[in-house]
Amino acid sequence: MAQHKVNYTKDGGLPVALTSIDKIVNWGRSNSIWALTYGLACCGIEMMASGASRYDFDRFGTIFRASPRQADVMIVAGTLTKKHAEFIKRLYDQMTEPKWVISMGSCANTGGMFNTYSTVQGVDRLIPVDLYLPGCAPRPETLQYGVMLLQKKIRANSASRAQKAKRLM
């Protein structure tokens, strides 16, 4: 019988890591934030750039999904017109809990330069927003930083706590 002196607790000794359920669930959630492809205007171009090879969102586990049912975060990238307002609400309702919203760019934050009759003056009039990214348009770095802040926010909450549905009202 071989007389190994294996230190099982030393890292790398065995592929085992001890953690709490909370942490592992949050780790999973925060590192697989699937985003809804939701480019509404010029900001959408920057969002696409963040997803493409130069900025490479896949590193953070953020993969764009074309269906709200598969998405965790809605990145509202661009100008929300009043004609489109009902659809943003419908898409938000179709996303499964837990869900988050990033409002990207001045237009989504406040209506931006479109101080006109046809633009919704900020998406937070319709859906609850977790993160506002300033800029017109924000650089892909801003969006990446925003996603990392969102990861931090997800980690800060207890995963085992019953999910409270987020609604504006």
Binding site: K82, A85, E86, K89, N115, T116, Y117, S118, V120, R125, L126, L168, M169
Partner: peptide
């Protein structure tokens, strides 16, 4: 005669319609 920032109907359009 239409105001640039919309009349009463335009200002509340999305809120009235959705909520």
């Amino acid at each position: 005669t239409y105001p640039l920032q919309g009349d009463e109907f335009a200002a509340w359009y999305e809120v009235d319609k959705i909520y």
